[in-house]
Design a binder for these strands. Sequence first.
RNA 1: GCCCCGUUCGUCUAGUUGGUCCAGGACGCCAGAUUUUCAUUCUGGAAAUCAGGGGUUCAAAUCCCCUACGGGGUACCA
Length: 509
Amino acid sequence: MENRVRVRFAPSPTGPLHIGGVRTALYNYLFAKQNDGDFLLRIEDTDQTRFVEGAEEYIIESFKWLGLQFDEGVGIGGPYGPYKQSERKPLYKDYALELINKGKAYYAFDTAEELAAKRTQAEAEKKTFQYDCKTRMSLKNSLSLPADEVKQLLDSGIPYVIRFKFEEGETIEFDDLIRGHIKMESSLLDDKVLYKSDGMPTYHLANIVDDHLMRITHVIRGEEWLPSCPLHVSLYRAFGWESDMPQFAHLPLILKPDGKGKLSKRDGDRLGFPVFPLEWHDPKSQEISSGYRESGYLPQAVVNMLALLGWNDGTEQEIFSLDELVKKFSIERISKHGAKFDMEKAKWFNHQYLQQVDDDVLAQEYFKELQQKGISTSYQTVMQVVSLIKERCSFAKELWQNSDYFFVRPAEYAEKALKKRWKEGTSQVMKTISGHLHNIEDNDWAQKAEDFLMDYIQKNELNMGQIMNCLRLSVVGDTKGPNMLDIMQVLGKDEILYRLDTAIEKINL
RNA sequence: GCCCCGUUCGUCUAGUUGGUCCAGGACGCCAGAUUUUCAUUCUGGAAAUCAGGGGUUCAAAUCCCCUACGGGGUACCA
């Protein structure tokens, strides 16, 4: 029980969940399940100014859709709650104070404006201002000010923050499960704020305290946290929690398909693919961002695609169910470098998964869609169409564009195809053929009609392609679609002949 | 600027302890086959002098160093 693996996904509710975040959560999930451990959801809402209405609900709904279940956390509960940091607010101050008492942290009274001025000034001199072991003695804090003045300031109720005190000349080292051994010089690090003047902890403090209290054993998170990891390690040591400090794994980022930098919301809009699992309606800007779900992606496809973006099992297998991923996943095989997102491959994954969906399931959905379009047809027909069309679709929503002609008579005939196939005199030939097709008995008409056509074309030394394509053109409106016999079977004698005769009349060459 | 991390086909990547890699797979691309059409499918092809340069070694994509480039961080944001 003591060594039970526990991991967490800890997003901030500042907007919709980015697919990079989804992948981070996925890897956490896979690792937890593989080790029979727990996967928790913690909401890190310590920055009240960035809170966005609905973001938390969005996050929970996203994981429901993706099929990644949390064992503990916001929306579920558990023995280590509450799991929302704003609800844990009273807890953090004592920990910050404990660090002050141990001499590992100090009060700082500099205002945000004063520090901003220092930064702009330094910038003008082409330097960088940093609140650290070299500058802190010349700033306003409990290290530089006399004790009685500090006490007076504190008693006066003036706003203050609590900063971590990095010792000079230490080398902070730790091991990352993905990147190996990492070293950093403490003198180069800045004294990060741990406790803000609004009474809230910063990410750094809250994160370490909660991970410790929630008995987190492995921290799997994005690479953007790597530079602050020495601070986190130092915090564990300062608290005296080093013996059960979690192991760290910093994941590479998902990058833009083109250009430079990490994938952002704008890239999705610009390049036309979703960056979020679900569609998001921004409450402030009213902007709508597309989601994988609404774009027609299957959750399993998204999971599979994301899992393979930066990880593989070393074999040539690319299609993995969630259960298989749980079995085969390993942190050691995660690549170290960022991966550019490839929307073509995402599409391919969806195609693979769509083919595995039962025709019946697709047909039911499609049947509903057709009803909504005001098309009356039988379920039987829809089922036939689906089994004929499915493999040419990457998304269920492509069903319509690939099979509309089964339900709607062609309004016009594709110009290019017409020019190529419908020559002078074709109408006359088609008229003759139509006459014969009318005379074929209804029973098993499609098969008999095809047999007749083959026979007729041969006997009259006609061009096969020419005749069949003209028939197709008449029925479909273009030279596309599945086998003509299949189309004839689905549509039946009356409809086929109606369309043929209409075409002959309309084209009339 | 400073700090950290990275660098194999256009893209995602294989390449665990250096030799069997003149580098394998997948997506995409091109061609052929099948489908008398389109799409699917199948077969084949082009595509990385392993970022560049130095070492070490009989032998390096694989080890070491340097440079370049890319990414991240540098907030009382996470």
